[in-house]
């Protein structure tokens, strides 16, 4: 009984400590108030495989050679050889007594037929119309690259291409803010998926001194969520946006912002 009481006392002591620590934290944050933003890094994954590098091509050829050397002849190859033999016999005026032999359509004929059929099918070009026109707004550009969605936004008196972002309202979690931002910028036609409840990147900057004093806010902390493009072609009117690959992103984003975005992106 006594022991129980003692434990209870201990617990309440711990709770008290916790309360105190929370309070001190709260004081810290009130001294320095920051605006919380959620940004969304919307990425389109590559649609087609990238071209093989020199060594990859070489190794592929080597594996192909090896495969051929280690293989034995297939039924079709045997048939082809038999056909060649039979034809030679016929040419010399001999007779074939095997009734099953069909020389009207030899293996070679079949092969030619299939090759012609295969040649008829034309796969779509990897270089699309959007690439030729260099249409930065199309999702059909640079099919073998990762593309990132950026929007032209007004920041103070400057206009910059950045990831779509929005200020957190009271009562929202950051994930909800990210979802709202996505919906507001690209609408609901485009199917996307946000990866995880946790942000994958972070960036902060301070406001100019006059705004800091006016609003009593030090600056903005931007928590970047990662989202994957799933399907759909958006009809985005009224906003200035671009789909950029890694190198274009490197040129477009503001310098410091760029490094914190690039930190969580997959290399190509």
């Amino acid at each position: 009984m006594l022991k129980n009481h003692f434990q209870l006392l201990k617990q309440s002591c711990n709770q008290l400590k916790h309360v105190v620590s929370v309070r001190t934290q709260a004081q810290n944050t009130t001294n320095q108030k920051w605006d919380l933003f959620s940004a969304v890094c919307l990425e389109r994954k590559p649609v087609v495989t990238p071209a093989l590098t020199e060594i990859e091509k070489e190794y592929k050829q080597y594996l192909k050679d090896l495969e051929f050397e280690l293989s034995v002849k297939s039924n079709f190859e045997l048939r082809h050889e038999a056909d060649v033999k039979h034809l030679a016999v016929l040419k010399e005026g001999g007779e074939i007594d095997d009734t099953e032999v069909n020389l009207k359509q030899t293996a070679q004929d079949l092969k030619d037929l299939w090759n012609a059929e295969a040649a008829e099918f034309k796969p779509a070009d990897k270089i699309t119309d959007a690439d030729k026109k260099n249409d930065l707004k199309s999702l059909n550009r640079k099919l073998d690259k990762h593309l990132i969605f950026v929007v032209n936004q007004k920041l103070g008196d400057k206009k910059l291409y950045m990831l779509p972002q929005g200020l957190r309202q009271d009562g929202e979690t950051l994930r909800q803010v990210a979802e709202r931002v996505l919906k507001e910028t690209i609408g609901s036609e485009l199917k996307t998926q946000i990866y995880s409840n946790a942000p994958c990147g972070f960036y902060k900057y301070k406001y100019p001194a006059n705004i800091q004093q006016e609003r009593n806010v030090v600056g903005a902390k931007i928590f970047i969520y990662f989202a994957r493009y799933l399907k759909g072609q958006p009809s985005l009117k009224g906003i200035d946006y671009k789909w950029l690959d890694r190198t274009e992103l490197d040129k477009t984003l503001p310098p410091q912002y760029k490094s914190s975005v690039q930190q969580f992106l997959i290399d190509e």
Partner: peptide, 15 residues
């Protein structure tokens, strides 16, 4: 990438 996420989470915890 993991480090970037951890940093973001740490900053969030401070807020």
């Amino acid at each position: 990438i993991q480090f970037a996420q951890q940093k973001a989470l740490d900053e969030l915890r401070k807020e």
